[in-house]
Design a protein around this nucleic acid. Structure first.
Lengths: 247, 247
DNA sequence: ATTGGCACAATGGTCCAACCAATTCAGGTG
DNA sequence: CACCTGAATTGGTTGGACCATTGTGCCAAT
């Protein structure tokens, strides 16, 4: 049963109106990621709009990653939806070369340093305990596998970003991470990619625990610098390989 | 005349195929931002696909900001298109309260400082000349209007970001600006909003022209700090007004 | 009772043909 | 020459039809 929150659409720009109505429906119904939306035909009927228009609106949400469509099954919510959310589609020309990865690192440098500062300024005892817990998990994984573990590493950083009190850090840096890891999986021929960053996780934590923003910034910068070095090494390796295969 | 680059589509996922064909067409034809694409009907015909499918594909590009549609006129390229471009759609839970605006400023602090550093490191003579030109335009507008002019201000910063050589700075900060300006239009009751930031534009330029990254970072931070102060003043004003209207 | 396969309904994907609404522009009119 | 006007162009919307995939429940074989 569709709740009465869905009501006919009247103003201009039909698909925008459909999206607005859909936001109201999702929030009103308290739908969470993974939940299924009404079928296109149902939405079209209740909003007094053609199915084509509903599809156009859903296509837009799909492109933004808010929704996932499965033929024969339905349309599913993929992310939280709020009334005031802002969409920021980032497009990077030629995303698979050295320069593009370097660009994501430049963003991370600025953002992670700032997040570390804010984190050190605002962390409560509970926050620090949580971050230390994530740090320990990461360190254990490191010793077991003799190398960085992407998931545990990300969890640690995530705890730092969340403690900064600013959700934007997490979202933007997450996008940079995703792009980076899309190629990190086959780390440009560099064994132990990220290995050098390991010790700086603890020094960063220490600075945060000591509530020393300046030191936290410094350690965050050092951490990124090691990743930058790895990337440069990888690019050099790649160049060498190309030369060899050419010969 | 449509060049033979457009050829019928055959494989699965029709709209994806349409987009691929469109990339080939745009690059092959050497289309640049502002240029007009073939009409939907033409594309549908040449790609042997229904107009609905073409529209679905164009809707996706539109949502990514690659293309702009004008009813009765046509569909226009809005950004450069390359075969390897990478999309990272971000959606931010932007509220309209003081805290959310403060969050955008924290992002800007990290990013604008970093951009200033890179700009100072990489600026050529031509870059510096362009930035100075934008600066002068902004200063003139300031003296004429006795206050900051949002457009000219943005143009100046844009020149700085572009000189950084990293397109992500422009894209991300632009989103933060948009969020900010949504409420800057009625600047929280603060007269002369942004006024205090004026002198730091020239000091920032001087640092860049002197190729002094450290100084550039410092001036960028000072500039953001003045905006932060304005915002805090505005929030205080707003609180006072609310109290008064309650009484 | 369990399992495997099959038919059917539900759902997203595509297509078509028409019409609406905004824009553009050529041609006419003052 | 300036201005209006109407037709052609182009994106926006509609309704209806059919296709492809998925989910489900029934039924038969084991």
């Amino acid at each position: 049963m569709i709740s009465p929150i869905l009501s006919p659409v009247h103003t201009a720009s039909r698909d925008d109106a459909v999206l607005h109505a859909l936001v109201d429906f999702v929030t009103g119904e308290g739908l969470k990621p993974g939940d299924r939306l009404p079928t296109e035909r149902l939405l079209a009927e209740h909003l007094r709009v053609s199915r084509t228009t509903v599809r156009e609106a859903l296509t837009r949400w799909q492109e933004l990653g808010l929704v996932e469509r499965r033929q024969g099954s339905g349309t599913y919510l993929k992310a939280a939806v709020t009334r005031t959310m802002l969409h920021m589609p980032l497009t990077l020309p030629s995303g698979n070369d050295f320069n593009s990865l370097m660009h994501t690192l430049e963003i991370r440098r600025g953002l992670e340093a700032e997040a570390a500062v804010l984190c050190a300024e605002r962390a409560t005892h509970a926050d620090i305990a949580l971050i230390e817990q994530k740090l320990i998990i990461m360190e254990e994984a490191f010793h077991v596998r003799h190398g960085m573990s992407a998931d545990e590493d990300w969890d640690f950083h995530l705890a730092v970003f969340r403690t900064s009190g600013n959700p934007l850090f997490e979202q933007i840096i997450a996008a940079m991470y995703e792009m980076f890891h899309r190629f990190w999986e086959h780390p440009l021929g560099v064994r132990d990619f990220g290995h050098a960053s390991f010790p700086y996780h603890r020094t960063l934590f220490n600075a945060i625990a000591a509530r020393d923003p300046t030191a936290a910034r410094g350690e965050a910068l050092k951490l990124i610098a090691t990743v930058e070095d790895d990337l440069k090494r990888g690019a050099a390796n790649l160049k060498k390989q190309n030369k060899k295969s050419q010969a």
